[in-house]
């Protein structure tokens, strides 16, 4: 029993154990929920819900929201679950710590919070925009789509890394 608890408190597991675990989790989501794992659609739905709350019901007339109706569904609950699961995982291994600037960023670009946040927001906007353009993110395409051997998902996953490696190399030369 104590070994199980020790394992749960361990802050880092082998990437192969984690990967295999995500693979098995995918079996379960296909079987019991008829859904693949995917995260970014929930962000678009939340954006739609917020826009609707701020700008009123005319937002629902937008073509994108007609085709992807904002609302709370399986995928939205999945994201809430990711937060709680990651929080419990970090908490029991004593990893929870509030931090504005990651140390690797600080070493290269300084400790200024606003510089880090400006880059993070610009990056986040590109991530959100690009995920909707490509119709999936590192979960929906990078894991769920590739495991189904979908051509568009393999192409997308390759482009995620081409873009990401390119910008990372420019940033941390």
């Amino acid at each position: 029993m104590s070994t199980v608890i020790d394992a749960l408190r361990d802050p880092s597991w082998s990437p192969y154990v984690v990967g295999a675990g995500i693979g098995v989790l995918s079996w379960l989501t296909f079987l019991f929920s008829d859904h693949p794992l995917g995260i970014s659609t929930a962000f678009a739905k939340t954006a739609g819900m917020i826009e609707k709350a701020v700008r009123g019901p005319k937002v629902s007339k937008k073509l994108y929201y007609q085709e992807n109706q904002p609302g709370i569904d399986w995928g939205w609950m999945l994201v809430i679950g990711v937060f709680i699961g990651a929080l419990v995982s970090a908490w029991i291994s004593g990893r929870f710590r509030l931090e504005w600037v990651p140390s690797m960023w600080e070493e290269a670009f300084g400790a200024n919070i606003f510089v880090r946040l400006a880059a993070a927001v610009a990056g986040g906007i590109c991530v959100g925009f690009g995920a909707r353009w490509g119709n999936g993110c590192t979960s929906g395409h990078g894991i769920s789509g590739t495991m189904q051997l979908v051509l568009g998902s393999w192409l997308s996953a390759a482009c995620f890394f081409i873009g990401g490696v390119g910008i990372a190399m420019l940033m941390y030369r």
């Binding site: 880059a119 990056g123 590109c126 690009g130 353009w133 490509g134 993110c137 482009c159 873009g163 990401g164």
Partner: peptide
């Protein structure tokens, strides 16, 4: 599946997280 994911990738590098790992 090319331009969108490339923009995503640039954002991924700037932000340092993808949607799931941001959460």
């Amino acid at each position: 599946n090319i331009p969108g994911p490339l923009i995503f990738g640039i954002g991924f590098g700037l932000l340092g997280y993808c949607p799931g790992t941001s959460v």
